[in-house]
Each structure stands twice: as structure tokens, then as C-alpha cells.
């Protein structure tokens, strides 16, 4: 394994850490993407507007990358549309039932040593490993 192979993930990860720290320091919020999406589906309020704006920032960040480094957003996986559609349903249903995803439980929760989040992260990693072994 060469330096490049883990340096980019480390730098990208650190940027994610900076973003979630900003949300905590300024707004007092946990940056859980699934929670933000799910809550923004409810009736919009002025207090909840930050969720829409955060998601707009996330999508604009994607547009920015698409303009300068489109290779970083290319999907080369062998998954077909049916698999993707089922995956989306499972991710949406599961993250609301389990109150979080990779960001809310995996980054924010683990960082504050929440036992719930550590258990949730171990669980979704285990089942992620499981299905990839079954499919490969």
C-alpha cells in the first residue's frame, strides 16, 4: 500500500471532521446526513431551514467537484438499477429506524464515545461486509 492510497482518504476524512466540528461549534448540531434528510421531509419551518441549506451546500460541493475533478464521482461498480433501487429503500428505511448512518453514528457518535453509535456502526459494517461477500 503506497502513501497516496491512504493520504487522500485521511485528508478527506479530516475535512469531514472539520465540517462536523463547525456544525457543532457554531450551531450545536450533530451532522447526521440521514437525520437531516429525514427531518427536512417534514413541513418546513424557519428553525429547520438550516437542514435544507446544509443539503444545498452538500449538493453544491458535488457540483464543484464534478466541474474540476469529475473522476472522483464516477460509479464503476457492477450494481444494476434494481439493486440500486433496493439499496436505496434499505438505506432510507434502515437509517431512520436506526436513527443514523455513517456520518451520524460512524463519525459524530463514535467521536463522542456514544455506546449506541458504536453498536450501530459495528452492526452496519458487519451487514455491509456480509452482503458484499454474498454478492462477490
Amino acid at each position: 500500500m503506497n502513501l497516496e492510497q491512504y493520504l487522500s482518504p485521511l485528508i478527506g476524512g479530516a475535512m469531514i471532521g472539520v465540517a462536523v466540528t463547525m456544525m457543532l461549534f457554531f450551531n450545536g448540531r450533530v451532522t447526521g446526513i440521514s437525520g437531516i434528510v429525514a427531518a427536512s421531509l417534514a413541513k418546513p419551518t424557519q428553525e429547520g431551514l438550516w437542514r435544507w441549506i446544509f443539503l444545498a451546500g452538500l449538493i453544491c460541493g458535488g457540483v464543484f467537484i464534478q466541474l474540476i475533478f469529475p473522476d472522483l464521482l464516477v460509479n464503476l461498480s457492477d450494481r444494476n438499477l434494481t439493486q440500486i433501487a433496493i439499496a436505496g429503500l434499505l438505506v432510507g428505511y434502515g437509517t431512520v429506524m436506526g436513527s443514523g448512518c455513517t456520518s451520524g453514528h460512524g463519525v459524530c457518535g463514535i467521536s463522542r464515545l456514544s455506546v449506541r453509535s458504536i453498536i450501530a456502526t459495528l452492526t452496519f459494517m458487519f451487514f455491509g461486509f456480509l452482503i458484499v461477500q454474498v454478492l462477490s
Binding site: 446526513i33 440521514s34 434528510v37 460509479n75 461498480s77 450494481r79 439493486q83 440500486i84 433496493i86 439499496a87 436505496g88 429503500l89 434499505l90 438505506v91 432510507g92 428505511y93 434502515g94 437509517t95 431512520v96 429506524m97 436506526g98 436513527s99 443514523g100 448512518c101 455513517t102 456520518s103 453514528h105 449506541r116 453498536i119 450501530a120 456502526t121 452492526t123 452496519f124 459494517m125 458487519f126 451487514f127 455491509g128 461486509f129 456480509l130 452482503i131 458484499v132 454478492l135
Partner: peptide, 19 residues
């Protein structure tokens, strides 16, 4: 918490996407 995370994990591995 457990069942929801399990379903999410299956979806994550199936599609390769998290939210």
C-alpha cells in the same frame, strides 16, 4: 437501533452508497 443499522448495512453494501 440494531435492526435499522442491519438494514442500512445491507443497503450500503448492496448499492455502495450511504446517504
Amino acid at each position: 437501533l440494531i435492526l435499522g443499522s442491519a438494514l442500512f448495512g445491507l443497503g450500503w453494501g448492496l448499492g455502495g452508497f450511504c446517504p
